[in-house]
């Protein structure tokens, strides 16, 4: 079985600094992968390279057999690889529903009632997803008036909306009230089950990742230090020394 998302020998340099050094990475369909590592280990850079926000200096990235290396970020998103940001990027001046619907394709001309069904389907899907994460009651509010945690949930809905194959979450728990983190992981599990989507979770909150992930990848200084099921990684001496030990 070939993986859904594969990255081969992805390399990324900032001037003289090598942020990613020929990293191999893959995600299988429906899997939850936790990506951890100390600050500056290259987690966020890998995520940016995969979602095409940053052009990799070397390496190949394939999604579902299709080469997506060097494509526009919007193209990658449409092909089924979406992401969230560390600083949840919702659009404060749009309503919650408008935010959720942003990934619709605007180049399709308005159908003026003749072919309403795709539009209606998108609206129903948005309403359903917003209900699922508990934002249904705020659909007509401006996104800027939501709390930090609610904005994260909205961004999650925005990433799920187009029906992607893989969603990558950058620091999903940062800025979220600790009491609500359990709720967040509940929402994630629910979405994972309902949508049959694979998640890549980049996290500082080790407890959260180990609770969620099927497989953990540990990065250190731009290389893969260890990889495997959570229990195995937890007991890996190298990982404990480099990262978990303290």
């Amino acid at each position: 079985m070939t993986a859904l998302l594969t990255a081969e020998r992805v390399t990324c340099r900032f001037g003289g600094l090598v942020a990613l050094d020929a990293v191999d990475f893959h995600v299988d369909a429906g899997e939850i992968v936790g990506l951890i590592g100390p600050n500056g280990s290259g987690k966020s850079t890998l995520l940016s390279c995969l979602s095409a926000g940053r052009r990799a200096d070397d390496g190949r990235i394939r999604l579902d057999g299709k080469d997506i290396t060097g494509r526009r970020p919007s193209t990658v998103a449409r092909l089924g690889l979406t992401r969230t940001f560390q600083d949840a990027r919702v659009f404060g001046e749009l309503t919650v529903t408008e935010n959720a619907l942003l990934s619709r394709d605007w180049t399709r001309l308005p159908s003026f009632g003749l072919l309403r069904s795709p539009e209606r389907a998108a609206r129903e899907r948005a309403a359903g997803l917003l209900d699922l994460v508990g934002l249904g009651g705020m659909a007509r509010e401006k996104a800027g008036s939501l709390s930090g945690g609610q904005q994260r949930l909205l961004e999650l809905v925005m990433a799920i909306m187009p029906g992607p194959k893989v969603v990558m979450l950058d620091e999903a728990t940062s800025g979220v009230n600790p009491a609500l983190i359990a709720e967040l992981s509940e929402h994630l599990r629910l979405l994972h089950r309902e949508e049959n989507v694979a998640f890549v979770i980049v996290e500082h909150n080790v407890g959260f990742v180990f609770g969620m992930a099927d497989r953990i990848v540990v990065l250190q200084q731009g290389r893969v230090l260890a990889e495997g099921p959570p229990d195995e990684v937890k007991s890996n001496q190298e990982v404990i020394d480099a990262y978990l030990g303290a």
Binding site: S74, A77, R89, E93, L101, L102, S103, W106
Partner: peptide, 19 residues
């Protein structure tokens, strides 16, 4: 909506699949 999204955050808009 896409235009307003571009105004607010271009990189974020691009990540939502907006060219």
């Amino acid at each position: 909506s896409s235009m307003l999204a571009v105004r607010e955050n271009e990189i974020g808009a691009e990540a939502r699949g907006i060219n």
